[in-house]
Nucleic acid binder design. Structure first.
Length: 263
DNA sequence: AGTACCACCTGACGGC
DNA sequence: TGCCGTCAGGTGGTAC
């Protein structure tokens, strides 16, 4: 699930639920997801402290630990957060749990364990170390054009490259390209500054709309292609049949009428 | 610099 | 019902 809009919704959720509450203990159910810290180390770092603030960069979420560093959460393909009180109705795969003195807990659920939980001292340095590009909602049109105009290769893989720009994954890349009327296999170099500028605008609109709708495809506008990610669905714009292709090994949905394939 | 392919994990789904 | 291949909204390594 988690691309930029999903992680932004997680950030807002955590901010609304788990900030400023004293942590009584942590429970690590699957230590494979811990990065660079032991379960005991995690417990020592958090016990008796409170989460104080949140930041997001691309698909990464950071949670300030009162006066001492940041919790770093990365969700992989299957992660989400759940703040709840009842151990019975909690999440199905809670890999790490943060228990609060008020009886609630925040679960880091991560079915496939492709996510990561760690501690970092400084968010900016962590972003630098992971070699993440500018956040897709922060990047200006000028920087966007600058970073892409000389790239070789296809536009979809470029949008998904987290070093070029952070936050876009397989699903939202398809949506952004659909909204911009650009085929995922178009060569970046052939697009030109004007088209890149349009693409940047389409990207901002898609991301903001998705966040407005809580990243819930059921709430997306009719003009979005995300809720129609299945072979044989019809294009919301022209009613042609949506095609499924592979781009860099990833399932990719296109309307070849609205997104003409490269020559 | 890009891409193709495999790997990491767990689970759902369709075909036989 | 059971087994099997395939696929999945992420990322990293390696080989070309």
């Amino acid at each position: 699930m988690p691309e930029l809009p999903d992680v932004e919704v997680f950030r807002q959720y955590l901010s609304a639920t788990a900030l400023h509450k004293t942590i009584s203990r942590t429970r690590v159910q699957s230590r494979e997801v811990l990065q660079g810290i032991s379960p005991a180390g995690m417990g020592r770092k958090l016990k008796g402290r409170r989460f104080a603030d949140t930041r997001r960069h691309g698909k990464h979420l950071f949670v300030a630990i009162e006066e001492d560093g940041w919790l770093h959460l990365h969700f992989g393909m299957t992660g989400f957060l759940k703040y709840h009180k009842d151990p019975e109705t909690g999440s199905a795969h809670p890999r790490v749990r943060f228990l609060f003195e008020n009886g609630y807990r925040l679960d880091f659920d991560n079915q496939r364990m492709l996510g990561e939980v760690g501690i970092v001292d400084d968010v900016d340095r962590a972003v630098e170390r992971m070699e993440l590009g500018p956040d897709a909602l922060d990047i200006s049109s000028a920087t966007f054009i600058h970073r892409y105009e000389d790239r070789r290769g296809g536009i979809k893989s470029a949008l998904m490259n987290q070093e070029a720009m952070a936050g876009i994954g397989n699903i939202y890349a398809d949506e952004v390209l659909f909204q911009a009327g650009i085929h995922p296999l178009d060569r970046v170099r052939d697009l030109g500054a004007e088209v890149l500028n349009d693409l940047h605008g389409a990207m901002r609109r898609v991301l903001k709309t998705a966040i407005d709708r809580q990243a819930d495809p059921d709430e997306f506008p009719d003009a979005f292609i995300i809720p129609r990610r299945k072979a044989g669905a019809t294009c919301p714009r022209c009613k042609e049949t949506i095609k499924k292709i592979k781009v860099n090994g990833r399932g990719t949905f296109v309307c070849t009428a609205c997104q003409p394939p490269p020559g």
